[in-house]
Design a protein around this nucleic acid. Sequence first.
DNA 1: TTAGGGTTAG
Length: 651
Amino acid sequence: MWTLQTPPSLQPPYFPLNPVAASYSYRSISIAFRQHYSTISTKPTTFSHNYNDSIQSFCKKGQLKEALQLLFHEPNPTQRTYELLILSCSHNHSLSHALTVHRKLIDDGFEQDPFLATKLINMFSDLDSIDRVRQVFDKISNRTIFLWNAFFRALTLAGHGLEVLDFYRRMNIPSDRFTYTYVLKACVASESLLPKGKEIHGHILRHGYECHLHIMTTLIDVYARFGCVGNASRVFREMPEKNLVSWSAMIACYAKNGKPLEALEVFREMMSYDMLPNSVTMVSVLQACAALAALEQGKLLHGYILRKGLDSILPVLSALVIMYARCGALELGRRVFDQMSKRDVVAWNSMISSYGIHGFGAKAIEIFREMIRHGVSPSPISFVSVLGACSHAGLVAEGKQLFDSMSKEHKIYPSVEHYACMVDLLGRANQLEEAATIIQDMRIEPGPKVWGSLLGSCRIHCNVELAERASRRLFQLEPTNAGNYVLLADIYAEARMWDEVKQVRKLLEAKGLRKVSGCSWIEVKRKIYALHSVDEINMHIEQSHAFLLKLSTEMKQNGYVPDTRIVLYDLEEEEKERILLGHSEKLAVAFGLINSSKGETIRISKNLRLCEDCHSFTKLISKYTNREILVRDINRFHHFRDGVCSCGDYW
DNA sequence: TTAGGGTTAG
């Protein structure tokens, strides 16, 4: 045992915690300690005082400042003491304290300790200080697998996935099962890394980890993020073992990649194995219901959420708000929102965007302002939501004012998404030149979203010249996005420029691209049906098609004039009309009318934007059949009642 | 010592 005497010149509390000021002082203190202890006897005595225990105890109680003060009175801090100090710095989220601990740890000769270096890497990663993570890693000569894994985790979290892959290639010790989860996640850093992800998938199989649940779940997630639903599904199906997390990952994969029906199918399958969903599963399943406008399914899920007590979990509640709003039951979504005991920015954003897609721009702005009054700071997504709401409602002046306030009042600097909203807002309102000027004056590189918004507006207002300008840029930026070519062809077709339409179609074919086919979903008696524009096999479609032909004839007698301008082929009028009648949303309307009782509201969801002909057709149908018809397209809601649409023909 | 799935927009 040591006899410990506090040096007389260093009575606590003394230690400055400012890292810059501290760097000199601590070194002096260290020297003072060494000099002091060189003079005292090493002979054990009966009296002892262990500061290590006290420091550790302070750390465990979260009293970091007190722990640090004692640290400078302890001549031999142990590895455990430093471990707890490092953890405590992470919990306190204090970079200045972290730097103090790091310096003292070096002074005490622990710089080469791989265990503490691993902890330091985790700490600096938690404190978003990636440069210090690199510093710690560089210093260590004996790099353990723990150290490598912590380093990979930190780099991936900081968005430096490419660097992870580079280090992974140069790693001089064997990977373990943890390494693969980090390295796989690193591949998500860039779209171009899919081949790398597949290569690592190969390494995993070669090392016999094909049955490892954590790694396989990460693989499902990584393939999902690349949009490779087939690969994700194969990994999932070929696994001998599944648990709630892997089932949930597969459901989320489908829900996120435009396959909501498949998401519900996997959910049903999961339930058939008596695997009970948790809040994470529920969020994905609610998203799938929202995508399908499957209100009855959604209500069943809400019942389950209440029974299982999942109704205090914020993400679940936000997902419920969105689900109801996207199923056309905005008021039910509002009720969930009103009953929330606390609301984070995501909950507020959910309500803002819900009003937005229903065309209630002023209401969306009101909720946005209420959020600020409640002391919740808007996020970048709040602005995307509220600007989008302005756009749908044609609130140009309000949108401009909000866009202005972003940087001035909220210190949020516009990203491409915000510029895309502004271009959309102005473009829809036929202020195309001003929209083009916004792009010209942008301080950041206008990405495909911005040019896409301009092209979309050119489509609404049939501006060929500007459309050609926007599409030239878009074809460079997104050479494989078929939607852009189709939009330009639409514009040419409307302008009766058939040679140009042919050229664009040839370009599309030469690139081997295919137009995304239209698909509408409708729920009938809690069962969801998908109707595709080109589906000729499905019996439901045939029945609906026959009914549609009959309806169309009757509608023509009541003033319906098919809008054949949007057909991309130079055909006879009759042929064009036939093509128009094959649109998935018309088939879904007919299917809904056949399979529901009088007075029942028809709810349809569509994967693309509603076309002009379907819009005017559905308006007339709602009057002719005296039905309310809700159609949600990729952008917003259309509430058809008595021959009028809630969008006011502005979409 | 370390790891897997979920919220809002476009």
